[in-house]
Amino acid sequence: MKISFKINGEDITVEVDGNMPLLWVVRDTLGLKGTKFGCGKAACGACTLHVDGIAVRSCSYAVRFAEGKSVTTIEGLSIKGELHPVQQAWTDEIVPQCGYCQPGFMMATAALLNRIPNPTDQDIDDNIVNVCRCATYYRMRKAIHRAAEINNQKV
């Protein structure tokens, strides 16, 4: 079936099986590899992207539900080539190790900051539940607070 939606601000139409996970449409049909496959069961968060601003696990999101919606991936998080505050904070704190899960974490964090601009440690514990096997959580927490700071400075 034909499905039309916005991807990182651009209108596109794809012709695929409507039950195909958005993840594979984004990765293989659209060639945007920043959104990762980790489990295919919505359990690890590596495939997190935004649909209409909400953090969504795209491995478990049938593409037909994206019709008319706006999808943002890690590639669309930076604005005019400038790193998004979350990406900047991740850089400042040198968070990634293997880096595979990090786009998902950054997308989840960006969604968190949209709704809770100054998250407490408790907010971070409650909301950021993705899995990082390198266990970079210690730096991630610092980076999330740092991203909130960068955001505040910009406002």
Binding site: K33, G34, T35, K36, F37, T73, I74, E75, S78, L83, Q87, W90, T91, I94, V95, P96, G99, Y100, Q102, P103, M106
Partner: peptide, 19 residues
């Protein structure tokens, strides 16, 4: 020294076998 792969990993560049 900051990791030399930091920028690629922060931007989600296609650097993995899966990509």
């Amino acid at each position: 020294v900051a990791r030399i792969d930091l920028n690629a990993k922060v931007k989600g560049d296609p650097i993995f076998g899966m990509d």
